[in-house]
């Protein structure tokens, strides 16, 4: 554990809490892509099956349980409790276009052909692109609520911090995981446009609106 990873994990946790609080406080999931949240639930479910097989640390296990529980809680709020506010008309990204390539890629490029390893690899690839339905939704409506943009920023910053952590680990432990690094870089690049608009607009107190 190093400071970059810890900050990354904290950003990830903040993102999830911000999203849950936003939906809970406003009693609405308007502007939130349920499809991205389905993909994230799938990411955590496939990655954290190792909860049953391997023990890393208390921190590790607790965080995994929090990520799993909060992702299903988010799905419950979107698809059950506040279903009436779910903006399904704008959430039209076809997730099979992400799921199928991720399945194929994880069968082609993996560290090991064991079930748990294949699920982990799939989860890494899927996480890299899981935000696309949400970004698609923002681009379709041309705007995002300020709180939604805070959520997206924290979620993007998490993987960006992981990249710094991987560089640090490469030099201190000579450890590098090619699959996680390449997927993590792609994941961060997908947020780049958003980061730019967030920094130039939202942090200056303006609304998050895409240029016409």
């Amino acid at each position: 554990m190093n400071i970059f990873r810890l900050l990354g994990d904290i950003c990830h946790l903040v993102a999830i809490i911000v999203l849950l609080l936003k939906i809970w406080k406003t009693r609405s999931c308007a502007g939130i892509s349920g499809k991205s949240q389905i993909l994230f639930a799938l990411v955590y479910t496939t990655r954290y099956v190792d909860l049953f097989f391997t023990y890393v640390s208390l921190y590790n296990s607790v965080m995994k349980v929090i990520f799993l529980a909060s992702s299903y809680a988010t799905l419950y709020l979107i698809y059950v409790k506040f279903k009436a506010t779910y903006d399904f008309n704008h959430d039209t990204f076809r997730i099979e276009f992400l799921l199928i390539p991720c399945v194929i890629l994880s069968l082609l490029i993996t560290h090991d052909y064991s079930p748990v390893e294949l699920l982990w690899t799939f989860s890494i690839y899927l996480e890299a692109v899981a935000i696309l339905p949400q970004l698609f939704m923002v681009s379709k409506t041309g705007e995002a609520e300020t709180i939604t943009s805070h959520y997206l920023f924290a979620l993007g910053a998490y993987r960006a911090l992981y990249i710094v952590n991987w560089i640090y680990r490469y030099y201190t432990e000579s450890f590098i995981d090619g699959i996680a690094v390449v997927a993590g870089i792609i994941q961060t690049i997908l947020y780049a446009d958003f980061f730019y608009l967030y920094i130039t607009k939202v942090l200056k107190g303006k609304d998050f609106k895409l240029p016409a």
């Binding site: 990873r5 994990d9 990830h12 190792d50 391997t54 890393v56 640390s57 590790n60 965080m63 995994k64 990520f67 560290h111 090991d112 390893e117 982990w120 992981y162 952590n165 000579s174 450890f175 590098i176 995981d177 090619g178 996680a180």
Partner: peptide
Amino acid sequence: EFRGPKHDEL
């Protein structure tokens, strides 16, 4: 050098 699985990250 790419090393194999060591999934201590989240």
